[in-house]
């Protein structure tokens, strides 16, 4: 269970999150929507511990543990996964090598034995197949020369292999064609239903047609201003933020 209480975060001295509260229980899917500059990405970075995102007040507990006192890699070890809006390229490092190093780092943190090369190969091939990803992609350097859609698919492969207990997906659906969107949605849905928690950050309700959330929140000006169900997303789609009385560029 993720519990965020009164979270205030500054970036470069400017307050972006201004007292945000959010609780995500095991197995729940939450979607956060909101206008540009509302602080959606800031929320995901602050939870995961990116440098430069300074928490000035509030707490983030994950299964009772204080995430804010942990290094980013420790938070990952606790089962947190962030699907990046813009996955970065790492030249010269194959997807396989990267993912095996990542998995074994997490297992070391968890006190579990490292995965043998052979077993890892089986695992990653199986996951690639499930997600309809070309195994050749696994041999390529991490995200180097990948199209936008390929990068997002790659995030889904990583998520499937690392098998997090909580996934935060930051605009994973942006820039995807309908086929890629289906694959991404499929990846998310596979994670769901195993008592895993998911936080979807999205601009559009399109993804929510494929991954139906339990709750939808509207984030504006650094706070959650409205909470509802899937219907709220549809309302937003129909009327826009302004139509619900939310300033488009509140921040």
């Amino acid at each position: 269970m993720l519990e965020i209480k009164n979270l205030r975060v500054t970036v470069g001295g400017k307050e972006i999150l201004k007292g945000l509260n959010l609780t995500i229980n095991d197995g729940e899917v939450h979607a956060i929507m909101g206008p540009n500059g509302a602080g959606k990405s800031t929320l995901s970075y602050a939870i995961c511990g990116k440098d430069g995102y300074e928490v000035i007040e509030g707490s983030v507990l994950y299964n009772g543990k204080d995430l804010l006192s942990m290094d980013p890699n420790e938070r990952a070890g606790e089962g947190l996964f962030l699907g990046f809006q813009y996955p970065v390229e790492i030249p010269g490092v194959s997807n396989m090598n990267f993912l095996r190093t990542a998995l074994n780092s997490q297992r070391r943190y968890q006190g579990a034995p490292e995965v043998k090369a052979v077993d890892f190969l089986k695992l990653i091939r199986a996951k690639a197949k499930e997600l309809d990803v070309d195994p050749e992609m696994l041999k390529r350097d991490v995200n180097v020369g990948f199209s936008g859609g390929e990068k997002k698919r790659n995030e889904m492969v990583q998520m499937a292999v690392l098998d997090p207990s909580m996934a935060i997906l930051d605009e994973t659906d942006s820039g995807l064609d309908i086929d890629a969107l289906r694959i991404v949605a499929d990846g998310i849905n596979r994670l769901r239903g195993q008592d895993k928690s998911i936080l979807l950050i999205t601009h559009y309700q399109r993804l929510l047609d494929y991954v139906v959330p339990d709750f939808v929140h509207v984030l504006a000006d650094g706070r959650i201003v409205k909470t509802g169900t899937k219907d709220l997303a549809l309302q937003l789609e129909a009327k826009g933020y302004a139509g619900l009385g939310i300033a488009e560029n509140a921040a």
Binding site: G49, K50, A76, L82, Y86, A102, S105
Partner: peptide, 16 residues
């Protein structure tokens, strides 16, 4: 910083 954070978020420590 982006490369580094990407690796950290996947569980690698700074040195790795």
């Amino acid at each position: 910083d982006e490369q580094l954070f990407y690796c950290l978020q996947r569980g690698l420590d700074v040195e790795d």
